[in-house]
Structure formats: structure tokens, C-alpha cells
Design a protein around this nucleic acid. Sequence first.
DNA 1: GCCAACGTTGGC
DNA 2: GCCAACGTTGGC
Length: 154
Amino acid sequence: MKYWLMKTEPATYSWDDLNNEPNKTDHWDGVRNYQARNFMRDMKEGDGILFYHSVVKPPCIVGIARVAKEAYPDHTQFDSGAKYFDPKSPKDNPRWDMVDIQAVETLPEPVTLPQLRETAGLDEMVLLRKGSRLSIQPVTEKEWKIIRKLAGLK
DNA sequence: GCCAACGTTGGC
DNA sequence: GCCAACGTTGGC
């Protein structure tokens, strides 16, 4: 079992969009970065996800989700009207994938970026590295446990 | 709104 | 294959 962090701008897609009904599953489309895509291809059903809101004040982790379905082709790459249309993606070998995720629980207390920065043991976290813009990042088990605790979970 | 850090594109 | 130009991300 692995752990991940997934970023989203809540104005586009928020925790409430995923968590507006019990056990809702939704697809995570629009990833157009190869490194992030490769991490998605590495995801297995049941992996843990930290759901992160970017471009809000303060940026924060707001919920826990799980991988509900492993990577499969993102259909929006072939939709010429879609924002994430990719005319160069070969139909017989789609360039971009998406996964399905499912809300597990809302954090009792969101964990903010400044909080993460000042927490011991998170020094190596990808999110905290200078210039890290990856929208999907691996999280270690140690980091996962520290963050759950920060959020008031066991 | 600014801008540093990145990723991608395309001419050569 | 290099690299300048450009576009995007995302914290501040």
C-alpha cells in the first residue's frame, strides 16, 4: 500500500465536490504532466490519498481519499472541445490517464502548508521542496502517519 | 498581482 | 541535441 498527495484548486474541483454524498467515487482527469501521470500509473486500488487545496489561503490538506480504480485512459484528451484536449495523443496509445478516487474522511482540522513546514519529520516531503509544482506526489508512510496525527486522526 | 521555478515547444 | 521563448503553477 502506497500513499499519495493530490493537488487541486478548489475553484475548479474541491473536496466538497468529491465528498458531497457518502462514498462517492469520482474520476481525476486533466493531468497533463508526465511525471504526475507516471505516479498515477503506479497507484493501486486502496492506496491512501491526501487531498490538497492549492491557491487558497492558506493552502491546506482537507481530506483523506482512496484510490478506487487504477489508471485508465483519460477520455478528455480526445475531446476537441475540452480544455485538456491533446491533438497529438495517439488514439491507439493514449498519452494521458486518469484514476478514480473515493472520499474516505474529512479532516477534523485541515492541515495547512505553514503547519507542515514547521512540523518535524516532514523535511523531505515532496510538497515542501522548493519549486515543487507536481500535482500528484508520493507520500511516505512516515509522513502519512504524522499528517494524520496533525489532523486529529489516529 | 508578482514572479521564481519548471515543463514544453520548435527552430536551428 | 541545444536552448531561447513561451506558458503554467502556485506560494507569497
